[in-house]
């Protein structure tokens, strides 16, 4: 990967206080984000994707939550950073797009002003300048007749348009990193495709890196350069997108891919993964996927497997003691 990473997450563990005991919701999360790169975090609900994102912005902490490990943004440590410093990074350097465009906008404030507010807070420019800039971004995310709609309220927009406004808000200060927490989940498929294309273009034009959270592997294929698969609070496999789809090595990733219907193959029976994700209190000390894994052995129950290349290429790491063998790629 060229260049120093803009974001480097190491050994990130987020713990919540549940019934008096600290429970680790995520454990040992490691990943780097290169400039201009889009990394997808994939996993089912509750696997720790959103928590990881929230901790990158320093939004967790305080009573009932504990963040351990290291998150470095261009060399600066986010974990433990005072709130006043974090406020300067949030929105300006690292911005976030929320999942639900229907509730992410203030219902009693004109949308244009909501975009302009972030600009004037972080860039300290005049109202007129902020407005001009906000209008520029409304046009950039392709909101038709932006000047006339500047004063409109969120309820006067459709879901897709609202998500564009949320994106414009996040983009408005030209952050280095965009955290997109399932930004297309609430939208229908055609709008979803448009928004994805929009995000891809904006990232390329503004030289932004993006962490894209989703539970749809189809979306991953459409937008990401690399993908990290999460299960029960851990990254189980991380690889370039093409590599992961062509040659998954972790049994969970393999099982996920087998569970997706494909139009380019003869119909085969889709396979579900037996069992269920364990509750946070039931995590064992070993591999968290072991109870559902067809290849689990005694050793898997004992210690958590580390994320490592395990015989594959350096960019493709897997946290499994018995990964699928490296396949020679037909090329």
């Amino acid at each position: 990967m060229p260049g120093d990473p803009v974001l480097s997450v190491q050994g990130l563990s987020v713990q919540f206080r549940i019934g008096g005991a600290w429970r680790a919701a995520t454990r040992g999360i490691d990943f780097d984000l290169a400039p201009n790169e889009t990394l997808a975090l994939v996993g089912e609900s509750g696997c720790g994707k959103s928590i990881t994102c929230a901790s990158i912005l320093g939004l967790l902490g305080g009573e009932g939550a504990r963040v351990e490990g290291s998150i470095r943004y261009r060399g600066r440590e986010i974990v433990g950073m005072p709130e006043s410093e974090l406020e300067k990074i949030r929105g300006k350097e690292i911005a976030m797009i929320f999942q639900e465009p229907m509730t992410a906008l203030n219902p009693v404030m004109p949308v244009g002003e909501q975009i302009a507010e972030a600009i004037s807070v972080h860039l300290g420019c005049s109202r007129a300048e902020a407005k001009t800039r906000a209008l520029g971004f409304m046009e950039r995310v392709r909101i038709p007749a932006a000047p006339e709609r500047y004063r409109d309220y969120p309820h006067q927009f459709s879901g897709g348009m609202r998500q564009r406004i949320v994106i414009a808000m996040a983009m408005a200060c030209q952050p280095r990193i965009l955290l997109a927490d399932e930004p297309t989940t609430a939208l229908d498929v055609t709008i979803q495709a448009q928004i994805l294309a929009e995000l891809r273009d904006l990232c390329a034009n503004l030289e932004m890196s993006m962490v894209f959270i989703t539970h749809s592997l189809g979306v991953v294929a459409a937008i990401a350069d690399r993908v990290a698969v999460m299960y029960a609070g851990e990254i189980v496999e991380i690889a370039p997108v093409a590599e992961l789809f062509a040659a998954p090595r972790h049994p969970y990733t393999q099982a996920l891919l087998q569970a997706i219907p494909r139009v380019d193959r003869e119909t085969v029976t889709l396979r579900a993964i037996p069992g269920q994700v364990p509750a946070i209190a039931e995590f064992g000390s070993g591999c968290r996927f072991a109870p559902r894994c067809p290849r689990a052995s005694e050793a898997c129950q004992a210690v958590p497997p580390e994320l490592a290349a395990r015989g594959g290429p350096e960019g493709h790491r897997v946290a499994c003691l018995a990964p699928a063998p490296v396949r020679e790629r037909a090329s």
């Binding site: 974090l86 929105g91 929320f98 807070v121 949320v166 808000m169 996040a170």
Partner: peptide, 12 residues
């Protein structure tokens, strides 16, 4: 609410 949480995420 998301939009109040978003204020924090925007650095307000």
């Amino acid at each position: 609410r998301d939009y109040i949480q978003a204020c924090r995420a925007l650095g307000f």
